[in-house]
Design a binder for these strands. Structure first.
Lengths: 256, 256
DNA sequence: ATGCATAATCGTGTATAAACGTGCATGATG
DNA sequence: CATCATGCACGTTTATACACGATTATGCAT
């Protein structure tokens, strides 16, 4: 190692500070400032971006645009959900057709997506559609709204779902377990999620730590059918390892 | 490459800001400001246009005309809309299947309906469904969401509408005139409203005073097809009399 | 008004240097 | 010894500027 007076975490913490102060950082500049190679800085920025702490761009990184204050409704645990959401939206690219199911996690993701563009979102959840329709194209899946789930379900919704092939399906899970897979509380909800997930090119699931290793009554899909799992920074390592062993890419969100 | 102190994404973000502030940007001006060639600026503007962030024009770019969705306008005169809504919901009875179209007036009505029970509401507007789904049964009409209108429209939505026979159809009008009838700003919206209105047992329209005697470009239904019109207390007597002469029941909302 | 001349602006292709990611070796840490 | 952060070498990708022919707006003469 060449002469650096900074530990990795310390360095990254300082980068976050600089980012908050000036809104952007340049890779070359940071390399000089911390006396490390640009490779190291790039590695840092990559890691931080995956954790949702910055937006990686050519030449450096930009601060995450602070989520509008009014959108930060104190429903459940907005900071935790927000961190997961920021990590998740990184995988959404312009031109994609993205499905969001009815879940509070996806409402948080919807708020983040609002700042993207060129994306089309499919959803069966009215609140998610409400948030998104001002910012991006929305395709609404209709049917009888199940108030326990918060979205349209039933034959009409299933029929709609069977005519779509999303590029990415983002599921908010009720339970995530290596053995039980992704599970949901309600039968029709599980059916619907399974239908749309199987028709999607990629499936991504977000899960708060307390959902890991638990199973709800109704199977949605097997764990291996989920390509990517976004978890919190403190997710249980043993559970995560079991899931990763099934070929699921694990993404850890940043600390709050 | 000549020296620029701005990262690409940052530069584009600033252009978006300038665009929002002044409504237009000039290619040459931006090139000087960011110390890059005009080619680079043109490429930026082209990319941004593809992403829907601006409208490309000869010499620069223009801001996208802000499509204020009805949810925002709904708050502009909440008391007036609330008064109309309270007058309108008096005609909703338990057991009814009620259709609410996408309009700010109907968002206000939805808030009032929340306190009723035993009602089922059909709507193509996500914000209305969001407000109602916790309180009453909701049937969501799906399809591609038209952000100008704030609800699902198009063939899918029309198909859904053709399978329903609501007891009551509540329309938020863009224009209400004895001769022109009920009119709307957008063709597909008018088509959809007409379809669902013709299938409903009763049609009720709410109109703020400034909508009376005016016509929007697209016909929805003739005035006589509307059984009941809810207006504000200060509605123009002459206009109201003409409409009443066609057999439309007039309901005046209370003062604020 | 209509047509034409002219200059500004445009899009594309090409060249180039910076920035990138990856695999691997190294030295520190525990 | 095992782990891990780091730096270096490699081929690849990306952002940019410049060159050139095409397009468009504008002014001027008819």
């Amino acid at each position: 190692m060449s002469g650096s007076d900074f530990l990795l975490q310390e360095r990254q913490a300082r980068i976050v500070e600089k980012l908050a102060a000036s809104g952007k950082v340049l890779a070359g500049e940071l390399a000089r400032e911390f006396s490390v190679s640009e490779d190291t800085i790039r590695r840092d920025l990559r890691e931080m971006a995956v954790a949702g702490l910055c937006r990686r761009v050519y030449g450096g990184a930009l601060a995450i645009p602070p989520t509008a204050p009014f959108a930060e409704r104190a429903v459940d645990q907005p900071e935790r959900k927000g961190a997961l959401a920021r990590a998740a939206v990184r995988f959404i690219e312009p031109g994609m057709l993205v499905f969001l199911d009815a879940s509070s996690a996806n409402l948080a993701i919807a708020r983040e997506i609002s700042s993207l563009s060129g994306v089309t979102v499919v959803t069966n959840a009215p609140p998610i559609a409400s948030v998104l329709m001002e910012a991006v194209d929305v395709i609404l899946i209709g049917g009888a709204v199940d108030r326990r789930v918060g979205g349209a379900l039933g034959s009409r919704a299933l029929g709609d779902a069977e005519r779509l092939r999303p590029d990415l399906c983002i599921l908010g899970a009720c339970g995530v377990d290596a053995e039980a897979g992704i599970t949901a509380f309600h039968l029709e909800d599980a059916e619907f999620k399974r239908t749309i997930a199987r028709r999607s090119r990629c499936v991504m699931t977000t899960a708060m730590s307390e959902k890991l290793g638990t199973a709800a009554p109704h199977d949605v899909i097997a764990m291996a059918e989920c390509g990517r799992l976004v978890v919190e920074h403190d997710a249980d390592a043993a559970i995560i390892n079991d899931i990763a062993a099934l070929g699921v890419e694990i993404v850890r969100a940043g600390k709050i």
